[in-house]
Design a protein around this nucleic acid. Structure first.
Lengths: 250, 250
DNA sequence: ATACCAAACTGGTACTACCAGTTCAAAGAA
DNA sequence: TTCTTTGAACTGGTAGTACCAGTTTGGTAT
């Protein structure tokens, strides 16, 4: 790439999946990254942005509303648009958005997500084992059956895997809990698909899932937690190894 | 300014308007509640909503964009606007929005938030005690000093309390963790202020906070976790008693 | 009863116009 | 020169219009 202007960002190069950051939101984040804007910095005005991106002002405003909702920016009437301390004040959904736009998580974020996921899911297993109802077990079984079909067909288990883990959290009966974990699965969908691209991993996951289901059905929190712990160890090692590989590439 | 760390803290809990539901967002949610709309149901068209609320279509669209990013609704081009399974698929920030609009949490939500908060903060204390740096301890001390001043002045400790707990999570070094807990504190700010409206609670909280700070500074995860556990027990009992009182009123 | 088609309606988008504040630099007063 | 004033330019907030390209729907012809 030789030519470099604002619209052709250097940011795109660092994104392994050139997942068409064509959307206005992506282009806005690209602009922020390109100009190295930090907390407190002021963005161009709405009219300026609209002209720069070749879209209407309404479209720009809608994108800005999203970023404001996610606590990425702050819009001060009659003054301007300002960046907030993203890494501290941003919402969890902001990371989800980031993932949807094809912006990969930073190394630090990956480690943090992995750590938090473990905390949440380990506790979820305890609660699920203590409180599970028949409906929960039936839902788990249905997902496992679906997963078995997916494995047989040689398809990607990623979504069935997510459904299983989310159903486990749902079995805690805590919907707020479910929302939080759901956000984590939304932000890591691409990585999960990549993980299961290696077909050998799916059967192992399925087997571990079955063990987890049984522990929960038996109402054994300790066994359930241990099963989840072992399951997560395998997944986490993949994520962290991937980080090391990425670090060596640079 | 000596306590610049505190006042210039990244956490702005001073919220948007705790105002009535005068905003378009609140009116939209009111409409949804009034018509008893559930998952899958279709909302009136944008033009209809605009006329109904006496605002421009652009304003309606911006409100809808917010609800869509929070996964409350789904907008299908050339078809309509549909409600999603809020309690399962909605984002955590949707609850924050709800709180900002003055819509109280349901009893189930309160119990779930309390439970999840305990899980998160107990683990946060362990990690904080293991990893705390000097900066973290200094930040905690600054917040405690600020809190002491607040108590002396007889003011409401709510925001200092939140700042302390968030600083604890920040001491884990996990920013994603911080984001999640931050959302919890955003959604419960009003309740926290009500809690500290009884001035007798502030000194107790301060004392417990000091104990927690010491345990973390000493690098003792078990003591830190236990201190947080005791602290939370008191707070939780207030929340749950409040629920019983509310239930009896009905 | 079925197949078909056109009108009505939908969200997506651009553009214009106006308001009410903020910002800031130039003009004026000390 | 230094400080004050003031006004023009600019800002986000909002309403309104027009058009596009699909979906939905109801009535017509088969």
């Amino acid at each position: 790439m030789t030519n470099r202007d604002v619209s052709q960002s250097a940011f795109r190069l660092s994104a392994p999946p050139p997942d068409e950051r064509s959307g206005l939101l992506g282009r806005l984040l690209t602009l922020i990254a390109y100009h190295r804007l930090g907390p407190g910095d002021r963005l161009p005005g709405e009219r300026d942005l609209a002209e720069r991106f070749g879209v209407g002002r309404g479209a720009v405003r809608e994108a800005l509303v999203v970023l404001e909702t996610l606590r990425v920016i702050e819009r001060r009437p009659n003054s301007g648009i300002y960046l907030r301390a993203v890494e501290k004040q941003g919402s969890i959904e902001a990371i989800v958005l980031q993932a949807e736009l094809g912006i990969p998580l930073t190394g630090a974020e990956v480690r943090e997500v992995v750590e938090l996921r473990r905390i949440l899911e380990m506790q979820a297993m305890r609660l699920a084992a203590e409180r599970r109802h028949e409906d929960d077990i039936r839902r788990l079984d249905a997902i496992l059956a679906q997963g078995a079909a997916t494995v047989s067909a040689g398809k990607n288990l990623a979504d069935d895997d997510a459904a299983f883990h989310l159903a486990m959290v749902e079995a805690t009966g805590n919907h707020v809990f479910l929302r939080v974990v759901h956000a984590f699965y939304l932000m890591s969908r691409n990585r999960r698909r990549a993980y299961f691209a290696d077909g050998r991993r799916a059967p192992l996951s399925q087997a571990q899932h079955v063990a987890m289901r049984d522990a929960v059905a038996a109402g054994d929190p300790d066994r359930a937690e241990a099963a989840m712990g072992g399951h997560l160890r395998g997944v986490e090692s993949y994520w962290l190894e991937l980080l090391e590989r990425r670090a060596q590439d640079e």
